[in-house]
Design a protein around this nucleic acid. Structure first.
Lengths: 216, 216
DNA sequence: TTGTTGTTCCAACAAACGATGGAATCGATA
DNA sequence: TATCGATTCCATCGTTTGTTGGAACAACAA
C-alpha cells in the first residue's frame, strides 16, 4: 500500500505535494498550534476542505510534514557522506559543515521543525517523534567519531547532538540574529560558517579553522 | 510609576506573582499560541477573569513573562561574573558553564522561552523582542573575549551566541534527549556539562577539558 | 451604619478554529 | 451521450479561545 506521503513525494506537481510544501513552511514558522489549516490553505490558494480532503486531520498533515523533512534530511546526509569519502577527518568535518549549512539555509523549515519538536510541547501528546537516534548514529559514523557497526556510547551521541543543534540554531534563528547584527543574508551565512568552524573544529579535530593546531 | 511586573517581583506571594510564575512555565512549554489563558488560570487555581484582572491581555502577560526571565537571567550573569573574578580564562569559562548549566536546569522555562523567541513566530507580530544584544555583550566581556568598553565585533557576538545556545539546547531539550539516551536527570545533567566542556573549551581557551593543550 | 476600594468568580459574548456534508465541476471511459 | 470517480468549493457545524460585564465578597474608612 502506498501512503499519501509517498504519493506526494513521487509527484511534486500534485496538489498533495503543493499542500505539503506550504505546510512545511508554515508549521516550521509558527509551530503546530500557531499554524492554522486556513493559513496553509490560503497560502496554497485553495479552500480548507480541499486540504482536508487530501490530508485528513491537521495532526495527520503535521505528521506527514515531519516524516517528509526527515526523509529529506536523511537523503542529504547520504549525499554528504559520499562526498567526503577519502578526505582526512579535519577536512571531512569542514566539508560537512559547509554543505549542511548551505542545504539547511535553503530549507530553513527543516531546522525550524526539528528544533520545535525538541523544545516545544503539543497540547495533545499524540504526535510521533521522528527517528533522531538513527540520524545521530549515521552522523557519528560518517564523521569517523566511531567505528562502523558498533553501539555508539552516550557521550559521543551527545557531541553529535551539540554539533547538529549548533547549525540548526543559526539557520532557524536567522531573522532574529541577522537583524540583531545588521547583516544581510550572504554576510550572515558566511559568518555562520566561520563561527561554526571556530567553535567545532578544535574540539572534534584538534585543529583551528586555519588548519594550524590549537595553540598552547 | 510602578509597573505590574515590578509589583510582582517585589511581592512573590501576591496573586500577580503566582500567576506570573505559572505563566512562565506554561508559555515556556507550549509557546505563545500553544498556551491558553485557561490553562494558566487552572494551574494557579483561579478563574480566568481573575487572571485578566491582574495582567490584562494575553500578550501583556506574555510580555511580562519575557521581561521577567530576562531580568532573572541578567541578575544571574552578574552573580557569575563576580564569582569567576581572578581566575584564568580557562577556569572562568569552565566555572561559568557549570554555574549557568545548573541554574538553567533549575529554571528550564528560561531556556525554553528564549529559544522559542529565537525560532518561532507569532501570528500577530506585535510582541517585543528582549534585549539579547546587551546580554551578549555582557557575556563577551565577562568571559574576557573582548576588552571593556569597546564595541564588540560581529564575529565575537556570534561565538557568544553559539555558546549560549548550546546550553539552552540541552536544557530545553532535556525531555527529548534524556529519554532518547535513557538517562535519568542527574546523569543527563552531568553528561551535558561534560559535552559542553568538550565542545566549547578547546575553541575558546585552547585547552581540552582535562586541562591539557589540544593535541596536534 | 454607609460607602469605598480592591479582589474574585459566574456567565456570557464574538471571533477563530478544526472539521464535515453536499453540491458542483472536470476528465476519462464505456 | 451517459456514467463514474476524483477533485474542488460553499456553507455550516460544534468547540475552543480571548475577553468582558456584572454580581458577590471582604477589608477598611467615614
Amino acid at each position: 500500500m502506498v501512503t499519501p506521503l509517498e504519493k506526494a513525494r513521487k509527484d511534486p506537481d500534485s496538489m498533495k505535494a503543493k499542500i505539503l510544501s506550504k505546510a512545511r513552511r508554515i508549521f516550521g514558522q509558527y509551530g503546530f498550534h500557531g499554524a492554522t489549516t486556513r493559513m496553509i490553505a490560503e497560502e496554497v490558494g485553495i479552500d480548507i476542505s480541499t486540504l482536508y480532503y487530501h490530508w485528513g486531520e491537521k495532526s495527520d498533515l503535521y505528521e506527514a510534514v515531519v516524516l517528509d523533512i526527515n526523509e529529506d534530511l536523511r537523503q542529504k546526509l547520504k549525499e554528504v557522506d559520499v562526498e567526503i569519502q577519502g578526505h582526512p577527518a579535519y577536512k571531512r568535518l569542514e566539508m560537512s559543515l559547509d554543505m549542511m549549512t548551505d542545504y539547511l539555509f535553503e530549507h530553513p523549515e527543516i531546522s525550524n521543525l526539528i528544533l520545535l519538536r525538541y523544545f516545544g510541547k503539543t497540547r495533545d501528546e499524540s504526535v510521533l517523534d521522528f527517528p533522531v537516534p538513527e540520524l545521530v548514529s549515521d552522523i557519528a559514523r560518517s564523521m569517523g567519531f566511531y567505528k562502523e557497526n558498533q553501539v555508539i556510547p552516550d557521550n559521543i551521541r551527545m557531541r553529535v547532538l551539540a554539533l547538529m543543534n549548533s547549525i540548526h540554531n543559526f539557520v532557524s534563528g536567522e531573522d532574529f540574529f541577522s537583524s540583531m547584527l545588521g547583516l544581510d543574508r550572504p554576510s550572515y551565512i558566511a559568518m555562520v560558517k566561520e563561527t561554526l568552524k571556530f567553535v567545532l573544529l578544535p574540539a572534534f579535530t584538534g585543529k583551528m579553522p586555519n588548519g594550524k593546531p590549537v595553540k598552547k
